[in-house]
Simulated scan of single mutants.
Amino acid sequence: MNSIKDNNTDLNQELIKHPSASCILRVSGESMKDGFTYDGDLLFVDSAIEPKHMDIIVAAINGEFTVKKLQLHPQLALIPMNSDYKPIYLETLGEEESFIIFGEVTHVIHKC
């Protein structure tokens, strides 16, 4: 039998390894639903971690945040996890457009 024990768990301590480089963001949209990230979920994002190929990241394109899977090869792209959305191929961004990786998603808390 499993039991639940209230031990006053501090989620910040449990889920955030780099407090000064981390934040919590709320998801808006459906582009990652096939990756089990849904509208209203909370994302723990760590900007101290260098993302690797196929990590889930938060990026900013022209100042607008997006959550996607990072593809580093064969070409740099942000891949949605919902077939209703198209990948964002970063080589197609114009010179006047900006792109920055904000951080890697380390944990997701689903909205009930």
Score class of each variant (00 low, 15 high):
P74H: 01
L93A: 03
D46W: 02
G35Y: 14
V45I: 11
G35S: 15
M54K: 15
A59W: 01
N62Y: 09
A21Y: 11
H18R: 13
E14L: 14
D55Y: 03
F44P: 06
H107D: 15
F102I: 15
S47V: 07
E30P: 02
V108K: 00
A60G: 02
I100T: 14
H110M: 09
V45N: 03
L72N: 05
M1W: 00
N2K: 11
L72F: 11
Y38R: 07
Q71Y: 03
K69L: 14
I16W: 01
E96K: 13
K5V: 14
L70T: 02
P80N: 12
K69A: 08
G35K: 12
E97V: 04
N8V: 03
V58P: 00
S83F: 06
S3K: 12
D34I: 05
K86M: 06
P87N: 11
I56M: 01
M81A: 13
Q75N: 08
L70Q: 06
C23R: 07
V45A: 05
I100G: 01
L42S: 13
N7M: 11
K86A: 13
M32C: 11
V105L: 07
G103L: 13
L90C: 06
I109N: 08
C23A: 08
N8A: 09
S83C: 05
C23L: 11
N8E: 11
V108P: 04
I88E: 07
P87D: 09
I4F: 10
L70N: 05
A59K: 01
I109Q: 15
M32N: 10
C23N: 07
K5Y: 09
Y85T: 06
T92V: 03
H73A: 03
A48I: 05
A60D: 00
E104D: 05
I101L: 15
V108S: 00
D34R: 07
L43I: 03
E95A: 14
M81G: 01
K17F: 03
H107T: 05
I109C: 10
S28K: 14
K5E: 15
G103C: 12
I24T: 13
P87W: 10
K5D: 06
H73Y: 06
L93I: 06
S20K: 10
D6Y: 01
D34E: 15
E50I: 12
